[in-house]
């Protein structure tokens, strides 16, 4: 099992990284972990169950706003707030899923419905004054709370290890789910829902569970987002661009694979950062330059390795993780 040794070494290296990396590297790695984590959550829906959600920013945003709102208005800390966040996101997720799948909405239509829900919510949040409306919600930093790590108040290191733990936990969970009865049902639904039904799979139930787990997990990412960035704007968190951003890592890394989202995040986030750095150094830093290259890189990746980078790497390393 040289695979496990490799993973253990990688994990050890990441745990040790803060000892010799500067703040910038740490901040980039936090982003990498964040995208790997939400990528894992989204991958359950699309990669395993075959349901293309283009509105996962909805669950990030709900998680973020619920936890931040509870903290600001009721003094309830994120460790407790996260449960409320999961509950709200999972409830909204199940409404979306129910509305779609009960009425036979599939494929492109489902994808567009998820966008509609996210946009609907974005505009709604623009008008909720209690949560700052369009002007934004801010989590102020004050001295007395500075060291309260249990309330997610702290420096980059706190968030670094928290994000690392989230990714590690999510990856373990996904690896376990993949080889569970439910995981088999999911991939059967993805491959051919009618054939799955003939084998006794309750397709609606399987999809709903995927939605519940995925939206709940994504909401945890939202809580992290809120307390790490400490400011929330509906136009930023719920925006379609956010949904697209969070699905890129698993697609580029390899849909339906356990390590795809991680590999994808390790490729895309540093690529984005490198592009920022490169455009700044060249002195040609018109806004948008970085994103243009990013778009071109996306096209190149999907053109050259459509099934993702990880299956390609895995073949070369001698692992056999094809899409399960």
């Amino acid at each position: 099992m040289h695979g496990r040794v490799l993973i253990a070494m990688l994990l050890a290296a990441l745990i040790a990284t803060p000892a010799f990396a500067d703040r910038y590297v740490i901040s980039v790695l936090i982003l990498v972990f964040y995208f790997a984590y939400v990528g894992q959550a989204w991958n359950l829906m699309m990669g395993f169950t075959g349901q293309l959600s283009l509105g996962h920013s909805l669950y990030v945003g709900l998680g973020a706003y619920v936890a931040a709102g509870l903290w600001l208005h009721a003094g309830i800390g994120p460790w407790l707030g996260v449960f409320a966040a999961i509950a709200v996101a999972a409830a909204v997720g199940s409404v979306t899923g129910w509305l779609s799948w009960r009425f036979g909405i599939e494929g492109v239509y489902f994808a567009l419905l998820t966008i509609a829900f996210a946009e609907f919510t974005r505009i709604g949040f623009d008008h909720i004054d209690m949560l700052g409306a369009a002007g934004g919600l801010f989590l102020p930093v004050n001295a007395e709370e500075a060291g309260q790590w249990w309330n997610l108040r702290g420096g980059p290191l706190l968030f670094y290890y928290l994000a690392l733990a989230l990714v590690a936990g999510a990856t373990l969970a996904v690896a376990w789910l993949r080889r569970s009865r439910l995981g088999y049902q999911w991939v059967a639904v993805r491959e051919d829902s009618e054939a799955a039904r003939a084998l006794g799979v309750d397709v609606f139930r399987a999809k709903m569970i995927a939605m519940l787990i995925s939206s709940g997990m994504t909401a945890v990412g939202g809580v992290f987002y809120a307390f790490y960035h400490r400011n929330l704007f509906p136009g930023q968190v719920f925006e379609m661009g956010r949904s697209i951003e969070l699905i890129l890592a698993p697609i580029v890394g390899g849909l339906g694979t356990v390590f795809g989202p991680i590999i994808g995040a390790f490729i895309l986030t540093p690529l984005g950062e490198a592009l920022i750095a490169a455009t700044e150094r060249s002195g040609f830093n018109a806004p948008g330059t970085k994103a243009v290259f990013y778009g071109a890189a996306l096209i190149a990746i999907i053109y050259l390795v459509p099934s993702g980078v990880w299956p390609w790497i895995a073949r070369r390393l001698g692992f056999s993780e094809h899409r399960q």
Binding site: I244, L248, I251, A286, P287, G288, T289, K290, A291, V292, Y294, G295, A296, L298, I299, I302, Y303
Partner: peptide
């Protein structure tokens, strides 16, 4: 993904 790539290039190219 292909068309999202195109969209990103267009928006930011215009920007």
């Amino acid at each position: 993904i292909l068309l999202v790539g195109v969209a990103i290039i267009i928006v930011n190219g215009l920007l």
